[in-house]
Amino acid sequence: MNNKRVIEVTVNGTRYERLVEPRLTLADFLREELHLTGTHLGCEHGVCGACTVLVNGRSVRSCLMFAVQAHGASVETVEGLSNGEQLHPIQEAFWENHGLQCGFCTPAMILRAKEMLTCCDRPLTRDEVREGISGILCRCTGYQNIVTSILAAQEKLKREVGD
């Protein structure tokens, strides 16, 4: 595989230029090239959603996207959310409401939550949150506390804006 391409991608606010194979997935680019291992691979066939990241603000399954397709894009991963030890309000809400057990789907759930809460400026219902996260599988929690965490995060973010 000698037909490597140069790509420019902004990840969590930092611009990267890398030479990559066209077949390299965005997930493996993030994990192997940039060492951002908070993006997890659960099935590599586009069903489980554990590899979800935000590309230009929209959630995508990074196992189904090639790194070269992200050329020129802005990518956000879970590592971009917290400020050192200081957790983002969505992360805090997951902690306070036991929204994770093994943590493997958690980065995807948190990023999807961020997208939903950014897109929607009215209060979400539990059913809407359930539908919103239905593309990401969780095998530990039964989803109930994830829904509660996302609604709690919405409250926190509203208070922050209010402040």
């Binding site: 997890h40 957790l87 992360q91 994770l100 093994c102």
Partner: peptide
Amino acid sequence: DPRFLRGKARYID
């Protein structure tokens, strides 16, 4: 939880 929430879990892969 904090390490898992921040994407610093250090799973095998």
